[in-house]
Design a protein around this nucleic acid. Structure first.
Lengths: 216, 216, 216, 216
DNA sequence: CATGAATGAGCGTTCATTCAT
DNA sequence: CATGAATGAACGCTCATTCAT
């Protein structure tokens, strides 16, 4: 997998921790740390879902996560870092699904699968997805998030090349596709749509309508 | 024009002020008040553009506007009200332009003009437009903002009916069109695009690609 | 009358105004000024009665009085001055009634009449009387209020002397009597008592119980 | 003692803290929290005594208490809550002393002891006692304060019954006695009296003068 | 490492007072 | 003089962050 960071610590805290990727066998300490990190992120997610951005503060997150504020700052240098890690957890999962679509039988099917993945991702935890999109747009774009967004664009771009578009066209079109999909699914989430099939059909129409007829 | 409220005071302050619509001749007092309100809104806009959401607080806004905090609260009950009034000023202007497009020669030309208006609006003050979109999405949607957004959708919807779509299709498609346009122009603004022609062409492609071939 | 100040301006503003006491024939200007002062004081009284100390601010007072804030500051240098003038208006009226009791047939009857006047005064506008007592206790004791309170004590003291007490005893007892009466009627007002007869009887019992048997 | 709450935390902060009454042995954490609460209340008391109601604000209280504003709000939800807790601390102490008087040899001696306790309490910190009385009268009477005041009245009432008064008379007279005592000692405090013996004698005269001869 | 009490800069808001019209 | 818009010091309160235990 290309981005496993959301399985471990968001930030290297000890030398041992940095070996996570190389040494998947974790000591009890590391396991506990990973569990705490996971609890914090899920606590943050729950606060956002249940009480919104207004109630999203480190004390509330810690309380919801069942840890102390101090522990939050043990694993994350700032509140923003928590938010970024949560975005990474969520978008990372989506990215994995999208990248898995590259194994489809045809470029068109691959693109359809990618759209389905995006729609499904948005409808799984719609409030969380929407608020994280807002936070992502609001945050000073750090490298990690830029990389993540770029990875999604790249996945789309590779698929466009596979479908026959030339490199310049793919580079131009891929970000637009992402913008179209994000715009539509966020708006649908805000309208509390729940029918993934109908939404997916409309997004497919928008995406394939935008692509040159030559695609696929 | 259907929504002239952004030309007057955001909140009725004196009995006389409520006569704005009937009596466009303003007394010196009203002029002064309107000037203060305008200064506050422009101060808010400048803070957002120059220093971002992080620095967007009432004292900074007042300072930038050349008035005192007290004056801000003379015309707006809360900081949020300032933000909402600014969104209304901006979106109201856009709405006026979009509605003016209905006089075009054909449905297709009207829609193209609407897209051009949206693109132009976004590129005029890209940072402000983007941050206000964020705030609009974040704010508890009061009636005024919901109405404004709905007016934009309605303008699109009327155009779709004119273009031959049936009522159910127009109702379904109009919000999607807005989501597509917003998604694309916001993303373009974030990427600091400045070429309105190129962006407009891509948005037109997305919009007309999404519409049924029967349109126009 | 010993303290007519509450009929004119609380503070001398013009030379002409200072002649009020000597020249009761007022010019139209002076009449208007006196009417404004009266309106402000009654506005203050109404705010206190209807909305309490929490809502007692100069803007609210001006609004309730039907004048502008500027006018309030034309006649009173500070908000505190308004409060003091209102206390004077109320306590001055009471003082006049109390002093009028000195003409009773006997010291005992005079004292009973004084008590009745205090009770009636408290029950006339109980909320106002209570809040003004609070403000009087809270305010830095300026000369005017100290004089007013002292006048009440003096009236009591004269009555005690008339009743046969020696000068030292009268000086000691008079303030205590006022404290007893104030304490009882304020507490009764707070309990929303409205029966002047019952309250008067209890206050009489307390006062005459405190006085030496030799009195009267 | 019927109301020991002023010995612990004003507001339950941790589950453990609620066990105070059952488990007087305090953990270091509880000790620290209790010390902070005590420091805040004493800081509030000192500000009131030294600089008056005008300077009584949360930042000043925190500074005087040697803690930060944040700590004030860790233990008290609002400034008013601080005031109420301070009133409880002071009146609670007085209530304890008054209730202890019930063990006197006779009803008359008990009542004399109660009066002595009130006088001593007022003269111990006269400025504080007076300002808290003002605040108590000004505050929207929450349950806690009403209960406290009622407890004082009840203690008096029980003593009146013991002295032979019937239940109706005791119910009527007890609040009056409290009003008389409060009125006299507050006024004495304001006049900066310091002689507890003389003041006590006068209060006793007022109280026993008010009581029916049958008492005791 | 975990805890959670403590910190304090900073924000939204009020309101007594001023002053241009 | 009346008006009421404008002022700005000051307050109550929050919450990201630190640190003693």
């Amino acid at each position: 997998m290309s981005n496993p960071s959301h399985f471990g610590l968001a930030y290297p805290v000890t030398k041992a921790a940095r070996d996570d990727a190389l040494n998947p066998r974790k000591s009890p300490k590391q396991l506990r740390a990973a569990a705490t990190v996971a609890a914090i992120l899920e606590g943050a997610a729950r606060i956002l879902e249940e009480r919104g951005l207004e109630a999203y503060n480190t004390n509330a997150v810690a309380l919801r996560a069942g840890v102390s504020v101090g522990s939050v700052y043990q694993y994350f240098p700032t509140k923003e870092a928590v938010t970024r890690a949560l975005i990474q957890r969520e978008t990372g999962a989506l990215l994995a699904e999208v990248e898995a679509c590259a194994t489809a039988a045809s470029p068109r099917e691959a693109l359809e699968a990618m759209i389905a993945a995006c729609v499904a991702h948005q409808l799984r935890r719609p409030v969380l997805a929407r608020l994280l999109d807002l936070e992502e747009a609001r945050l000073p774009l750090a490298d990690d998030l830029r990389d993540l967004a770029q990875s999604l664009v790249s996945a789309l771009q590779r698929n466009l090349l596979w479908g026959g578009l030339d490199s310049a066209a793919a580079r131009e079109i891929a970000p637009d596709l992402l913008a179209i999909v994000k715009g539509m699914v966020d708006a649908a989430g805000q309208r509390r749509e729940t029918d993934a099939g109908a939404l997916g059909a409309r997004v497919r129409r928008a995406v394939f309508g935008y692509l040159p007829d030559a695609f696929g």
